[in-house]
Amino acid sequence: MFLKPILLKELRQCQRILRRGVSTTSSWDIVTGICVERLPVVTPPLNEMQKKYKDMLYAIELENSLKSDHEIRHDYEKKQAELLKNESADVDLDTVSKITAQDFEDAATEELAQFKFADIVTEADKAGNKASIERCLQRHLVLVTTLKLGQDTKTILPQGKWQEGETLRQAAERVLLQHCGSDLKVQFLSNAPCGFYKYKYPSEIDGKVGAKVFFYYANYKSGNVNKNVKANWLTRNELTEILPDKYKKSVGEFLIEETY
């Protein structure tokens, strides 16, 4: 029973070694692609279910709660005001405060109304500017750039060839630096690639049949992409529209789904 996972692991290792043995000279270029993702800045809106459940929890919370100091003060003042209206003799005028709880509440609401929250729909959203990072604050955004591959230019994740003497991670960092400039700061999340994609060149170049792309995942930290580069920050839907079919599938395999 417990042997099974161990055996499977061994089998896989054997398979890998075998495959390596067969293909002694690599006829593929090793390429690193970098998936830079900006995480949502603002929490996504609640869906129908979440809203309903939240309302219910709030209602139960209120039912089970005790009155706060503010509410007690409010009740007391109400009683006092009524007594004053009836001109009852036993009302001590000193105890009737000048600023009532209601006044305080009104002032607080007014202050809140005057405060202006930043708009979730930013200027970049209004202008439809996809190059700006300040867009779609509630969504994940992925950086895509236009790259010249052979004759044609393509809009894909930034990528570049691995050079002898560096690790893949170093290659990814170098490629991103060369491609997007030093202003863009990102956080790579692993030494290991998170995805893989393979494509063939139309004709052999320097004895290479095609390229194997190893994707690295990184989170956006700060800064902007170099202005000379045509770069866009795209949501999941926009990605599926713009990326080539097979490439899209490879990239989608390691990205988190957006539920809203």
């Binding site: 890998r16 495959r19 390596r20 691995w162 690790t167 690639p193 998170c194 395999e253």
Partner: peptide, 19 residues
Amino acid sequence: IMAAQRRALDKLYEESEEL
């Protein structure tokens, strides 16, 4: 996501053990 990473690592092993 883990399977995607596993696949990428397997493919990398095929290319170069050092990497």
